[in-house]
């Protein structure tokens, strides 16, 4: 069994080897997951804001569904997207299966409910504070949603970061729709799965360490950016 210090040394060695292939894999992981989070937030945040502030028929049911979908197994999402994008599926003609685009689609579907549910939780409190004012001002639904999103933007970053955490760490969906094809759809998590299956446990763990480090760096960067922006806004 590999010991922890040798794994750590291996991880450091990997990062400073400046191996083009490793960096391409890291880059693809970031590109796919960040794009998915961007798209997930683009739809998820307004959806969460709508659930938090508007009353419409089916709101309760939709909230329950979104909350349940927060914990959807990535493999299931991967399977659904696979069936859609398969050449014998309804969107097969697009030829998207086994491409990074397919991975982005799968991860977007994976993180969107999470971002929507967390956004709803964040904005529900803000909405109860603003509700009477907004009703008194006769705001339209869209004005309400944009105002809530803007005023709650610092809290919403947390929702987006949770989405990023889920996206960058999942392997089930990208494995199925990406196929883990070398130089094309191989990302950090599928590489870790592959190395594990080859019995390269030390390498797999070292890659896991690199993945966690990148995840921490992304989180730290966005949170400090957030903090600075918040300070400037209150300056």
């Amino acid at each position: 069994m590999p010991d922890l210090s040798s794994i750590f040394a291996l991880a450091v060695g990997l990062v400073f080897s400046f191996d083009a292939e490793l960096y391409a894999i890291i880059g693809l992981s970031l590109a796919v997951s960040l794009t998915a989070v961007f798209l997930g937030a683009l739809f998820g945040i307004p959806l969460g804001a709508a659930l938090a502030s508007l009353s419409f028929p089916g709101r309760g049911a939709l909230t329950a569904i979104i909350n349940a979908f927060m914990g959807l197994p990535p493999v299931v999402v991967g399977l659904v997207v696979y069936l859609m994008l398969s050449r014998s599926g309804p969107l097969g003609v697009l030829g998207l299966l086994y491409t990074p685009t397919a991975m982005i689609i799968a991860q977007t579907l994976l993180v969107m409910p999470l971002i929507a549910a967390l956004s709803r939780q964040t904005l529900v409190e803000l909405n109860s504070e603003y509700d009477e004012l907004f009703r008194s001002l006769r705001l339209t639904a869209w004005q309400r949603i944009t105002a809530l999103i803007w005023d709650g933007r610092y809290g919403l970053l947390t929702a987006a970061l949770a989405g990023f955490g889920r996206a960058i760490a999942e392997v089930g969906a990208v494995m199925i729709v990406g196929g883990n094809i070398e130089h094309v759809t191989r990302v950090m998590t599928t590489t870790i799965a592959l190395e594990t299956s080859k019995g390269n446990l030390a390498l797999a763990l070292a890659l896991g360490l690199v993945l966690i480090t990148i995840s921490i760096l992304v989180n730290a960067a966005l949170l400090s950016l957030n903090k600075t922006a918040r300070r400037l806004a209150y300056a």
Binding site: A24, G27, A31, T35, P100
Partner: peptide, 8 residues
């Protein structure tokens, strides 16, 4: 980020 990865 995506453009940088275009060749991939």
């Amino acid at each position: 980020l995506l453009l940088a990865l275009q060749p991939a």
